[in-house]
Design a protein around this nucleic acid. Structure first.
Lengths: 296, 296
DNA sequence: CCAAAACCTCGGACTAGTGCTAGGTTTTTC
DNA sequence: GAAAAACCTAGCACTAGTCCGAGGTTTTGG
C-alpha cells in the first residue's frame, strides 16, 4: 500500500497544489509506471501490478493494441501477462483465454468509450451515460472474462491505436465494484495511461513521414464524403462540382499523404484525425447539418 | 488559487491514498471540469479557466475536434473562447487567429502524440522523445500561436476524434515553461481530458450502430492490407489466396460494418481500432515482420 | 453424433468507380 | 503585377464492386 500511496501523493497532488506557493519540488518526479526506454517496461509493469494489488487487490491485464494479438513483452521478450501480472501459462491458445478479459465484450466497449468504466455480467457502468455501450452483448461475460467484475481503462492513442488495461479483483466472486471504481478510477487511469502510452512509444516504431500533409479545405471536404462511402458522382453532386474535380482533390490528398489509392488515403487521413468523428455522424444522417469545412 | 487546490486535493489524492485504510470517502466526488449534461459545459469551462489561472496564470484554449472548425459552445450557443476563456472577438475569421494556438503546428503535433507537451518557437518538448514531432515546422510559431510558449494537452477520443487543450501564459513573453510543465502537466491533463471528453459525449450524437461488427480473422487480415494501399491482386499474392477470396472477405467485412464500399469499410474499421497503428508500420516497411493475425 | 450455421475457398462476366495524365481558370501571396 | 498556390475540367485505361455460381472446413448447438 505504501508504494502506490506515496507515489501518487507525490506526482498527482503534492507538487501541484503547493507549487504556486513556491514549494521546492524535485525537478524530476519519478512516476513508476512511466516508460522511457524498453528497459523500463519490466519495472513499470511491476509497479502497475503492485499499485493494483495495494489499491484494491486487483490483478492487472494489459493490451497495448486491441487490433493485435501480440502480447505485451518486456525488453527480453518475456510475456508480461505471465512473468509479471501472474496469469497462468496455459500451453494452447494462452492468449485467448487468460490474456484476460480481452476476449470479447471489453475491447468492444473500449472502441466506443474513452473514460474508464467497470463491468459485470449485468451491465457496463460508466461515469456518464454512453448509449453505444448498451448494445454490447454481455451474455457470455463470465466465460469470456475470468472474473465476475472488472474495472476497465480504455486508452486511445495516436494513429487509431486502442489499448486497454483491466483490473479484476483477486477475490473472485465480487460482483460490485462501484465503490472501488469511484475511489480508484482516477489513479488506475493515470497509471494505465502512462504505462500503455510509454509502452507503445518504445515498442512500435512508425517510420511513416507525411512530410507536407497540410490538406486543403476542398481535399478534406471530398475525403470526408468519400470516407462515408459516397462515390465520385455523388460527391460531385453534393458539392456542386464536376466529377473530375472531386477526383482531382482526392488524388491531391493522396499525394500529400503518400497514399497509393483511395482506401489508403482514407485510412491515413482517418489515422491523423482529419476525418475524425464528424463523418461518423453523417453516415446515418441526412447531411447538411454537418460542421461544414474544417481548418485548413 | 484555493479553488483549484482544494478540488484537486479532493479528487486526485485525498481519496485514493487513504481509501485502502478504510477512510470514509464521499460517494460522489465532484470534479468541476466533468460534464454530464449540456448544462454542465459552461460551469466546467469556468472551472477549467479558473484552475488554469490559479495554477500558473494560464489562458485556456480548447478544441474538441481538430478536424472541425466549429468552435466549442455552451448549451446556449455561446462560444466558450469568447464568453469564458477571454479571447477577443475579432469580427472576421475570429476562429483563425484567436481560437489561437490551434492554427498550425499544435494540432499537427497532437496527431502524433498522446502525452502532454509544451512548445516554444525553438522546439516541442515532450516527457519522452517522439521523433515524429521533430519534423513539425515551427518557423511561424509566433504569428500562428498568440504566445511565446504554450502547454498542450492532446486528447485522443473514440472514432478517431482528436481534441486539444492549450494553456498559454497570460504573462506574455515567457519562453520557457519547463518548470510549469513539470509541475502541472498531470493536473492540466486530467481536467482537460474530463472537459473535452465530457463535451464530446454530450454534443456529438453518433447514431451509428454496427450491430454485429465482429470481424473474422481473414476479414481483418484483408482489410489491413487494403488499408495500406494493396490491390486485390497484391493481397491475393501476399496471403496466397485467390483474388476472388480477397474480395469475398472484404465484401463480408463491408456488410458487417454496414459500409457501402471499400473506402468506407476501411474508414469504419480504422475508427473502431481494427487496423490501428500496426498497419502504419507496414506502409514503409517490407511486410512479414508484422504482428500476424489479430483477435477474432 | 448430427445438423445448422458460420466461415473459408474459388471462378467468370458485367457495370460502376477510380487512377492518371494533360490541360485551363481562379484565388492567394509576396 | 508576377508567381505560386489552389481550384476546376476532360478522356481513357484500369481497378473494384456486384451478381451469378460451386464447393470445403470449422464452430455451434441440440
Amino acid at each position: 500500500m505504501e508504494s502506490s500511496g506515496d507515489t501518487l501523493t507525490a506526482c498527482m497532488d503534492g507538487s501541484a497544489t503547493q507549487a504556486t506557493a513556491g514549494a521546492d519540488i524535485p525537478s524530476s518526479r519519478h512516476v513508476p509506471t512511466a516508460i522511457a526506454t524498453p528497459a523500463d517496461i519490466r519495472p513499470a509493469a511491476e509497479a502497475l501490478r503492485d499499485i493494483a494489488r495495494d489499491i484494491g487487490n486487483f490483478q492487472v491485464a494489459a493490451c497495448a493494441n486491441i487490433a493485435s494479438k501480440m502480447p505485451m513483452c518486456d525488453a527480453d521478450g518475456n510475456v508480461l501477462a505471465h512473468s509479471i501480472f501472474g496469469w497462468p501459462t496455459s500451453k494452447e491458445q494462452w492468449w485467448k483465454k487468460p490474456l484476460l478479459a480481452l476476449s470479447s465484450p471489453l475491447p468492444f466497449a473500449c472502441r466506443y468509450e474513452s473514460d474508464p468504466f467497470w463491468v459485470n455480467a449485468a451491465g457496463i457502468y460508466t461515469r456518464a451515460p454512453n448509449p453505444l455501450l448498451d448494445q454490447i452483448d454481455l451474455s457470455h461475460f463470465d466465460e469470456l472474462v475470468n472474473a465476475q467484475s472488472v474495472i476497465v481503462v480504455p486508452i486511445h492513442l495516436p494513429f487509431g491505436q486502442i489499448g486497454v488495461v483491466s483490473f479484476s479483483p483477486l477475490d473472485n466472486g465480487r460482483k460490485d465494484l462501484s465503490r472501488e471504481f469511484e475511489l480508484y478510477a482516477d489513479q488506475l487511469e493515470y497509471h494505465s495511461r502512462r504505462f500503455i502510452g510509454g509502452y507503445s512509444r518504445v515498442t512500435s516504431h512508425r517510420p511513416w513521414i507525411p512530410k507536407n500533409c497540410r490538406l486543403s479545405k476542398r481535399e478534406v471536404e471530398c475525403l470526408r464524403w468519400a470516407a462515408v462511402g459516397k462515390t465520385d458522382v455523388e460527391i460531385a453532386m453534393i458539392l456542386g462540382r464536376s466529377c473530375a474535380t472531386v477526383r482531382f482533390h482526392i488524388h491531391n490528398a493522396a499525394t500529400k499523404l503518400e497514399a497509393v489509392n483511395r482506401s489508403q488515403t482514407v485510412f491515413k487521413a482517418t489515422q491523423l484525425g482529419y476525418l475524425g468523428s464528424v463523418a461518423a455522424v453523417m453516415t446515418g444522417g441526412h447531411g447538411e447539418h454537418h460542421d461544414g469545412a474544417m481548418i485548413e
